[in-house]
Design a protein around this nucleic acid. Structure first.
Lengths: 335, 335
DNA sequence: ATGAAAGCGCTAACAC
DNA sequence: GTGTTAGCGCTTTCAT
């Protein structure tokens, strides 16, 4: 081989040698510390440029014990607009604190979530923001006790007392379904991802509260669990509407499901009324009336991130739970 | 103060002392190295659990000289579905390589981009994926020469020879506008973000090629620069359509602009034909015919990330430029 | 204002 | 199998 070896990264020792100063002086110049003679500083800067020196932040952090200026964000699915909006809001707050964001998606897998969280702990992030997929987060207790701030977002933690920021899932779902009921619907189908997810349980409970209050009996057939994606939602709608006793209204309990319902209703020209949890861009241009339970997703992400940074910067008050309001945007047909 | 001091993080020395072994043995156990007597391993594990020890990955990386298992991704705007899809694809590939993703948005600000990139270099990421906002990336040359892989995505780098993955912006725009021309349109407005952005220049050039080929003269009035967001797009549409010589078709050169045009056309009930670059979910449910220049955004992100990891794992071939195809999805009215 | 030496937490290299 | 020592690149402490 003709020596394709890459040039070794220069260190402060290399820079010091080249500039004819001590490493400490290089450190001072590189970090903008005061009290360095201008001529020495110039020589150091020249050596830095010549050598292509870039300070090793890992070594710096290790020795100084400073924060890594990094926070971790674990969500379920990056491409979903709900999580993308949260990520954008968190990144915005992180930037305001000169901190970078390590982002990963758990894909609703508790094992993967645990692995990711512990990995981030090893990387000594300054704080963690988690949309939990698992049900037991006690494995984080030691880290939390040693001062690692963790904020849970959208769903509560399991087995760990920690800051939590939630949406008013139950109230929003109840208010949405009440609109359907007011317009005379008695057979309302509810399509949901999985009862193992906190938000789904809450939204279903809210829907059932509204039904119960209106004296509508519970019908097993209308509650459809396991609707994981838009395709599944479309299939479920087809199946429901082909029954002898079809629903007259449908509740999509998250944005993916609502999109799937919408597509299938459009395809078959169904006139059933639709309620969705989560608003989305252009929802007002949909080819049919669509009522949505909406909220400020950006503010949601920001609240959680701001709380995290309050902890990082020393706030030691008792763990809090914040519930953000939702509101119904009613585009249904008036009767 | 009554000693609110947090317990110090235990180190391998603490674990070793507690387990009555040497640090090296702790290191072996913690890293799953072979040749440790089971009873010693058990004692170490017990001490680890008691103390809540978590290996400091920064120190480990520093000493061993191993990779950080981190890549950086710089995009323009996290919440935009185009970038969110790319981020999801990149995260997917990163995961396949047991690597985490540091993500940041430059917000189209070259200074911020430079700052972020150099920060990531200090953090010793294993590679960089960049949707460039700036025009000069020569400040990365030293890093690249020392072996840092960098892949540019969606737009080419400035002043730096590096791997690049692009879309066929020009060909896609040309093909899209050709459809409009085929249907008899002679006055086609083009709304674009900024001519300083590479993709915009290419898309406008493609549109003009199609017009020129059809003998359509250039009309200054119809090329609208500076359309930064959906609101601006809506305003521009209103202004164009209120002119004495309004366009009969509009070309939105990115997803944000197309959304804005769509809203305004819907609001005023305009019958003008619409072409958009970038497809989006539910575009087929829009209340009017909408032709889009589409491509596989997920594959786009994956290609770039896979190329990056090929570099990280040692591929040293000449920098490549890949151009991914687009296709027109024609939902326009047949004449 | 500058430098020498020690050491952050860990692992490589070499004992034993 | 296990332990000792040195040192990754940097910053701290304390001289001068």
């Amino acid at each position: 081989m003709s020596g394709g070896g890459l040039p070794r990264r220069p260190t402060m020792v290399d820079v010091a040698r080249r500039a004819g100063v001590s490493v400490k002086t290089v450190s001072r110049v590189v970090n903008g510390a005061p009290n360095v003679a201008p001529d020495l500083a110039d020589r150091v800067l020249a050596a830095v440029a010549d050598l292509g020196f870039r300070r090793n932040g890992l070594a710096s952090t290790l020795r100084s014990g400073q924060a890594t200026a990094t926070i971790g964000l674990i969500i379920e699915e990056i491409a979903n607009p709900f999580y993308a909006t949260i990520a954008a809001a968190v990144a915005e707050v992180a930037r305001e604190h000169d901190t970078v964001l390590v982002m990963a998606s758990s894909e609703e897998d508790p094992d993967r979530e645990k692995h990711l969280l512990l990995d981030l702990c090893s990387r000594r992030v300054d704080g963690l923001l988690v949309v939990p997929a698992g049900f037991d987060h006690s494995f984080l207790r030691a880290e939390v006790q040693m001062g690692l701030p963790v904020v849970f977002l959208d769903r509560p933690a399991g087995g760990l007392l920690a800051d939590t920021v939630l949406l008013d899932n139950r109230g929003g779902a109840r208010a949405g379904v009440e609109r359907l009921v007011e317009r005379g619907h008695r057979r309302i189908a509810v399509l949901l991802d999985s009862m193992s997810v906190y938000t789904m349980r809450e939204r279903v409970a809210g829907a059932q509260e509204a039904c119960a209050a209106a004296g509508i009996g519970y019908d097993d057939v209308l509650i459809r669990d396991g609707v994981r994606d838009p395709q599944a939602a479309a299939r479920t709608v087809a199946e429901l509407l082909d029954r002898p006793d079809p629903p007259t209204a449908l509740f999509g309990t998250n944005n993916r499901i609502t999109v799937g319902i919408l597509g299938e209703l459009w395809r078959r020209g169904g006139a059933e009324e639709l309620l969705g949890f989560d608003d989305f861009e252009l929802s007002h241009l949909m080819p049919r009336p669509l009522t949505v339970v909406s909220y400020d997703a950006h503010a949601f992400g920001r609240s959680a991130a701001e709380l995290l940074f309050r902890r990082i910067t020393g706030n030691r008050s008792w763990p809090s739970t914040t519930v953000l309001p939702t509101r119904v945007i009613d585009r249904g047909v008036r009767t």
